[in-house]
Design a protein around this nucleic acid. Structure first.
Lengths: 201, 201, 201, 201
DNA sequence: CAGTAATCGAGACGGTACGTCCCGTCTTTAT
DNA sequence: ATAAAGACGGGACGTACCGTCTCGATTACTG
């Protein structure tokens, strides 16, 4: 009934404790290799070799390559939902921050693959979806505050709003190589999305 | 100046001509295996075996597994941009048609992977981008006609419009497992997108 | 100066040790397949399948098909240089024993191929030549003892003697399909070779 | 019943006649490629490409790669059995000539492979054996003349004599990389072989 | 303080797909 | 009928990676 076990602090128990150092090095190496080699060239053997760690040490912590990748991305800092009281500008800022993260990490290469795998791998979905949901929070929070302020109608579904804001951005980011994602272009997309949110269906 | 050469009919020339039969069987088998096995379980050896064709015959036509997959999708019928003079309804119809295609073919599993590969494989991008562009046409055409009718402002960028319509849908289709894509939900997304298109930036 | 290192017992070292069982099964299967399929029909995939071993396990030990074959032959028991004090009879016996081994194993099919490959593959020569040298030992020993007994002149070169004994035999064995290699024929060849060894050049 | 057909001059008949030019170019290219690439790197596709000839043109003439190789070697000039009346010197000369041919052509690489194939390919044996027999003739002739002169006993079997002369040489030539085959070494081998031929068994 | 148990590194293992290569055959159009 | 060109089926090659396993060597907690 309780999910405490999952969160519970690992009790010492007998036996040699897992090295936190190893965990950190593995995740760092994972991130670095994803960037330098791309997802396709990313290999657990390479991670093990470069991190000076055995493959068992990796598999003891994460059940598959994909889980490791998700864990690595999980450490990227969360988006900070700026609150200047201006809906459009707040959204633009958080979107640009997201774009920047995607471009500097290997997310653009890895995310599609993870998405593809998730479809048929329930175990992966279990790790992936919370991460994704966490990534969606900032936009939702900004929209929520705007509703509270009365800038947006009360009946607006937060998920729908998020889809409208991020959908076009993600399309340009992942699907089209050369989509315009300058601040100006983003502001147009966001402005139009916000306009679409106003009023009832 | 002319692109005719690229489109020109392949002249017979000397040597045994490539078997159109083989090509057809390979693409059919590819599509079928993608659906039945998923992208990860999809193998060129399986294609060769099931299509009763040698691997050389496949590799002679497409330089890699990914190119073959794109070629297979390339044969899926183009979306037909219905024209009932009602912008929102026309868009809803074409979007639902797209959703249906994605769900009945293996697109949902394959597209993310292809997108991921495209990022670092220029040769793949060359084959992938035209296909994607072709898929974007119907929505653009509908929007274009609406502009001609005066239903939408003349200055509206077609790509932007397309991103606003398809972005949220694709987000729900690929990224979120259980996004609501019923006709009602789609109509809301499309209606809001259209509202966002109206007026200037 | 010492060659001990090469012969030294493999120290355990870290990591999972290589399975001696696997090694044995692979070599057994190799030998059996060479006999049943002939050299041309001999395939590493077949070996892997029949030995219930992965190809990696084979390639981890031997760098190529040819090296594996040599390793398999390397296990055939060495010729036993009989010593009845009769030079000709001792030689006849060891030659007949050699002929028998060649005929019952796949040597007759494999040896020529290996010889052909050796010419341009230094790595192969490195494995092949010691094996060949080992095969030459028995005849040399018999000749050496005969020299010690005073049955052959002291200045006789052992290699030359060996070439004179085995050359005609190998010619008949490998090059001519139907060369007479009965005990009587062999005794004639050996007798004449021994007569040629007597006296100075 | 008659074998005339095989030897009969090709009657013109209908249709385009076979190009003698093509035949010559193919054989030349075969020889050259065997030398430059070695037997393993020798490919019919390479022959066709370099000779500017289609593979069909090759297969119309010879039923397999091996037959083509034999045909190419078949054009090497026959050994000329010098006759200076000195048995040993005549043999030494013809042996050295043979050694030279083997070393300048690709024979050393190809012969072992052909020998290996011959064992299980009757059709190949049919082409190979006559060639081999032809190569054995000079030594036999020299021995025959020596018998006629009374230098060797009348009962000596020619094949046995040939085996004794060529066996050791071939052993050094094909099997051992670095066998001494200088004129002096060859003279010793031949002298000893001749001594072995003298007297009865 | 000895014993127990989980961890570590190293690296072998079965399985399987990849993309390349070559053989010998077949199918075109052109001589 | 031959020729050049080149596609075809078949099948082996050697490489790579995955996720599992087996070692000997460390660490801690436990009795």
């Amino acid at each position: 009934m309780t999910k405490q076990a999952a969160v519970a602090v690992k009790l010492p128990g007998p036996g040699r404790p897992r090295s936190e150092e190893a965990e950190r090095v593995i995740l760092d190496t994972t991130m670095q290799l994803l960037v330098s080699e791309g997802y396709a060239g990313f290999t657990l053997d390479k991670v093990a070799a470069q991190a000076r760690v055995s493959k068992s040490t990796i598999y003891r912590r994460w059940p598959s390559k994909e889980h490791l990748v998700i864990a690595a991305f999980d450490r990227t800092p969360p988006l900070t939902p700026a609150d200047k009281g201006n809906l459009v500008e707040d959204l633009v800022n958080v979107v640009l921050e997201f774009i920047n993260i995607v471009r500097t990490t290997a997310l653009s290469a890895a995310l599609p693959v993870l998405v593809g795998e998730r479809a048929k791998n329930p175990a992966l979905a279990e790790a992936f979806d919370p991460w994704l949901e966490r990534r969606r929070m900032p936009v939702k929070q900004i929209v929520e505050r705007a509703i509270a302020r009365g800038d947006l109608p009360a009946g607006l579904d937060l998920n729908t709003a998020e889809d409208m804001v991020m959908g076009p951005v993600i399309l340009r980011l992942f699907f089209y190589g050369k989509g315009d994602l300058s601040r100006i272009a983003v502001r147009e997309l966001v402005s139009r999305a916000v306009r679409g949110m106003e009023g009832s269906v």
